[in-house]
Design a protein around this nucleic acid. Structure first.
Length: 978
RNA sequence: GCCCCGGUAGCCCAACCGGCAGAGGCAAUCGGCUCAAACCCGAUCCAGUGCGGGUUCGAAUCCCGCCCGGGGCACCA
């Protein structure tokens, strides 16, 4: 077995024995990876407990710095070169922070439950646990070979029973909570019961607690839990055989995963009351350092909008039958100031008002309103069934086209007593606001379109200064002042929009006709799935079909063996199908007899599993305290030791941590903007309310990395051809042309994927270049947040850089270290300190691409020297270390240092070498460069101006014209205006 | 339709608060090394910053209006 010091002879006899070849790089890399592991080099020290650093010490004076990657899904397909980009970036930051003296915590776990793992297992006919664990082993090997500075002791997978235990434990905490809107936080169910018992809190429906049976009391409480079961319309996806959360359904009504149709079906399902946190989830975005794009996506998804609920009396109907007599319809509007312009109403087709409609059309019904039907009953029934049968896709396609029908109901506008017709139309959604709107065609384009189609009157109640131009057609949605908005008691005329809103809301509230309110687009999170590969719910159903929490000491509830773990799926468009949970297939598991303190009883286990998001909702906490309760409080009842949470995550736990605390750097793709990131924030806030954490937000700083894209090539038949075998050459017109086996192929730009035949794997890169070269290339391709194309042939540039670095220290022929102990010359000193100063700035701002450029520049300077001074190259080796750690460790070692450089201080520039002896001053005439003069950096404005005016080329350019103005920016620039 | 990001050399990308358009890499060309080639070393070539206006002594950078590419949202009252 050869060692890096004594490499095996290379194939080619002419190749120097000690050249930095891929083979040598590989030996160096694997040796250091073993050494780091043996020494525990990257062990992060907790302030107390079992986890110390590699030397057995607890956390010292270094600032805690917690770095995280969005953890991977161990796919069966293996990694391609695009996947590790973020992992390398966080590794570079982590190693850099370590060299800056921070106590860095960086580890990687695996998100291993979920649909793809299950589907892969079904395909290969194996148990999901088998395939998932195999995939994790493969992925760990690929990632280890990259040399990531992770604390391996803190790695885990969400499928580990010890992890599942805590996922289920958190679920039970949420189940055991309700939201106190007065205190604006979650509290324990026992406190709710105590307040009901004491009579200090009224029951929602006004009944008396004392009068209720035990069963009734449980129903009251169960309905208020943050994790609750209810029957309501949910997203049912027959193609996947499970229900889905709103966040998992695309805008055109298909499943995000698998792209199957999704139908609305009323089912009894578990939900999480995330809506209780809508305000805090919106407001606290102010406290964290996230990309504005992600923040706005979250705000958008939560969709807070303030306005008013206004009640319209429904009239007229009583003349025909009893339906609706004395009834009211409540609408939500963000523009109560336009109430005087409401000339009709629209309710969603599913609105309960339509359950009974008048038997005959009232007087004054326009022909166009009826849709040709003889009675409102027929018209509404027809429209409702038409709307119900419309798929989300069709509805989407029809957006903008206004359909609807008059319901026969008339309502009274509370501000002016005018009678307005009530229509139903599918442009009003039952799921938003109250499912009913007041239509103001003068102020809303959608209402205007509807009014035009149905010949309804238009009243403008807002006008811009100077009034609407006579040629104005359509709604006026701009700013302006109220007009036509006066009744006997209140007038809005002349008020701006904000003032008008305030005045009319006050009037509505005084009249009892409405009140100011806030609505949200966010819905409660549908939390149950009818799949096998997920966490079972720690819930038992008693004989009365009421839920009972499994005691914490009985956790985890393991997945049962079932004869078939494939989900029961259906034809993707089978609307009438219903979910069937695979866990129900094991009768022995489902039915249990347990003594929960009131004697042995029969229970039925909940057969749902949790969504994939559950495990990723709290994994950041697991990194802090990965050894379960052994590190925690004596009873072992908390998900994370409070001391560790405060140390790593608490508000202002280091110099850059904000008031919300949280992970110091969280890197991942933007695709989780509203799913994982919203759910995790919600769980974190529940844990905060219950006192388990002190940080207000889980992720203090978020960074979205770009994607590595790739070119793919297709032939005439549209078939992809292997990208690696495509040749590029000039075509007949001089433009680049691509050929494969002699035939011309077309180039496409996009993802890297098996079916596109353009996958490049990290393993190939290790083999052909080594891990360090691969790392340097990925980091030098461009800024981290930009997507860019992979180009294997360009990797050689990074390899050349490392080879030159190697040769600056080691003789390729003999393997001898060639550095001298001579003092560097002045130019080298200046170049070195310039590089040190610049590289530090680039690293601090997470710009490895420009840091590498400056390292290359300095390395090239050293290459030009006859002998490289040790003191000139050692700082370079240290600065390279975060990006290419193996070669840096090896050179550091060969330069005579016994210890790893992982915690050597990152070089600091000496100011005195940063000032140049002279600087080149540019002299412009009318903004154009006409001359250059060498001057002292400390030259005075006056001297510089005089020198500039004397410069021969400048004199020629001025050509005797009178000088009007001279702008001097000493010492770099003079601009002469003539 | 609305919102966000981007457009600089053949390609990937730099350019701080407006101050010489170029740090780095790839490719190409030439030269050196070599019996020769590859590797390696050295050098050269290449854009006036997507388009049109404006502000300024001076604009890749700031403002206005467009074009192209990528992403997000989309009958949310």
């Amino acid at each position: 077995m050869s060692t890096p010091e004594n490499p095996a002879p290379t194939q080619s006899p002419t190749e120097p024995a000690h050249r930095y070849t891929p083979a040598l790089a590989g030996r160096i890399e694997e040796r250091w990876q073993d050494l780091w592991e043996e020494r525990g080099t990257f062990y992060a020290a907790n302030p107390s407990g079992a986890l110390t650093d590699g030397a057995g010490e607890h956390a010292g004076t270094g600032q805690p710095f917690f770095i995280m990657d969005m953890f991977p899904y161990p796919s069966g397909a293996g990694l391609h070169v695009g996947h590790p980009l973020g992992y390398i970036a966080t590794d570079v930051v982590g190693r850099f922070r370590m060299m800056c003296g921070d106590n860095v915590l960086h580890a990687l776990g695996y998100d291993a439950f979920g649909l793809p793992a299950e589907q892969y297992a079904v395909q290969t006919g194996q148990h999901p646990r088998t395939t998932t664990e195999q995939n994790i082993v493969t992925m760990k090997r690929q990632l280890r070979r990259m040399g990531l500075a992770h604390d391996e002791r803190r790695s885990f997978a969400t499928i580990d029973p010890e992890y599942v235990r805590w996922t289920q434990w958190i679920f039970l905490q949420i189940f055991d909570s309700w939201y106190d809107t007065d205190a604006n936080r979650a509290r324990r169910i026992s406190e709710l019961e105590a307040e009901y018992e004491a009579g200090t809190r009224a029951l929602p429906d006004g009944r008396s607690w004392a009068d209720l049976s035990d069963a009734e009391r449980r129903d009251v409480v169960d309905a208020q839990r943050l994790a609750y079961v209810d029957e309501s319309p949910v997203n049912w996806c027959p193609g996947l055989g499970t229900v889905l959360a709103n966040e998992e359904v695309t805008a055109d009504g298909r499943s995000e995963r698998g792209n199957y149709p999704v139908f609305t079906k009323s089912l009894r399902q578990w939900k999480m009351r995330i809506t209780a946190y809508a305000d805090r989830l919106t407001d606290d975005l102010e406290l964290i350092d996230w990309p504005e794009k992600v923040k706005s996506m979250q705000r958008n998804w939560i969709g807070r909008s303030t306005g008013a609920n206004v009640r319209f009396d429904v009239v007229g109907a009583s003349d025909h039958d009893a339906a609706g007599a004395g009834a009211q319809v409540e609408v939500f509007t963000t523009r109560p100031d336009t109430l005087f312009g409401a000339t009709f109403m629209v309710v969603a087709p599913e609105h309960p008002l339509l359950d009974e409609v008048p038997a005959a059309w009232p007087d004054g019904t326009h022909g166009v309103w009826t849709g040709g039907y003889a009675t409102p009953i027929e018209a509404v029934a027809a429209y409702r069934s038409e709307a119900a049968s419309k798929t989300a896709v069709e509805r989407q396609a029809d957006a903008g086209k206004k359909t609807g029908v008059f319901t026969g109901h008339l309502a009274v506008n509370p501000v002016n007593g005018s009678t307005v017709p009530v229509f139903t139309a599918d442009y009003v959604l039952m799921g938003y606001g109250t499912g009913a709107i007041m239509a103001v065609p003068g102020g809303d384009q959608r209402d205007f379109d509807f009014a035009e189609a149905f010949e309804l009157p238009v009243v403008h109640t807002v006008e811009p200064a100077g009034g609407l131009p006579p040629e104005h057609v359509g709604a006026y949605t701009g700013d302006g002042v109220a007009v036509n908005s006066t009744n006997d008691e209140v007038s809005l005329d002349g008020l701006g929009v904000a003032d008008a809103k305030e005045r009319i809301v006050a009037w509505l509230e005084a009249k009892g006709a409405g009140e100011g309110t806030t609505t949200y687009r966010l819905r409660d999170w549908l939390f149950s799935r009818q799949r096998y590969w997920g966490e079972p719910f720690p819930i038992l159903w008693d004989a009365d079909e009421r839920p009972v929490a499994v005691p914490a000491d009985m956790l985890p509830i393991d997945l049962p063996d079932v004869p078939d773990y494939a989900p029961r799926t259906f034809e993707p468009d089978d609307v009438d199908s219903s979910p069937e949970a695979p866990l129900g297939r094991n009768d022995d598991w489902v039915h249990v007899t347990l003594d929960l303190g009131d004697g042995p009883k029969r229970y039925r286990r909940d057969t749902n599993t949790m969504p994939n998001w559950a495990g990723s909702c709290w994994y950041y906490l697991r990194y802090l305290d990965p050894t379960d309760a052994t590190d925690g409080p004596a009873e072992g009842t908390a998900v994370v030791d409070p001391e560790l949470e405060t140390y790593w995550l608490g508000p202002r736990h280091n110099a850059t941590s904000g008031a919300a605390g949280g992970v110091d750097l969280y890197v991942g793709g933007v695709e989780h903007a509203v799913l994982h990131l919203l759910y995790a924030r919600f769980w974190h806030k529940v844990l905060l309310d219950l006192g388990y954490v002190t940080s207000i937000e889980p992720f203090g700083t978020l960074f979205n990395q770009g994607y590595i894209q790739a070119y793919a090539f297709v032939d005439d038949r549209g078939q992809h051809v292997p990208a690696a075998e495509v040749a590029e050459g000039p075509g007949p017109d001089g433009e680049p042309q691509y050929t494969w086996n002699g035939q011309v192929v077309q180039r496409e730009y996009g993802k890297m994927g098996k079916s596109l035949k353009n996958v490049v794997t990290p393993d190939e890169m290790y083999e052909q270049y080594g891990a360090d070269t691969f790392r340097v290339y990925e980091m030098s391709m461009g800024p981290l947040d930009l997507s860019r194309p992979w180009e294997t042939r360009a990797v050689v540039g990074s390899q050349r850089f490392l080879q030159r670095l190697w040769r600056n220290v080691v003789d390729e022929e003999t393997g001898e270290v060639t550095v001298t102990d001579d003092a560097p010359d002045a130019a080298t000193l200046r170049a070195m300190h310039r590089a040190v100063a610049d590289v530090r700035v680039e690293m601090e701002h997470m710009r490895p691409n420009t840091a590498i450029a400056k390292l290359i520049t300095y390395n090239n300077h050293l290459t030009g020297l006859d002998r490289v001074p040790r003191s000139a190259v050692e700082p370079l080796v240290l600065m390279v270390a975060p990006i290419a750690p193996h070669i840096a460790e090896e050179l550091w070692h060969r330069l005579g240092h016994d210890a790893s450089l992982a915690r050597e201080p990152f070089p600091v520039a000496d100011e005195q070498y940063l000032v140049e002896d002279t600087v080149t001053c540019v002299v412009q005439v009318k903004g154009k460069v006409r001359g250059r003069i060498e001057v002292s950096p400390s030259v005075s404005d006056a001297d510089l101006e005089a020198a500039a005016l004397a410069e021969p080329n400048v004199v020629r350019a001025i050509d005797g014209a009178p000088v009007r103005k001279v702008i001097v920016r000493a010492p770099k620039l003079v601009n002469i205006v003539v």
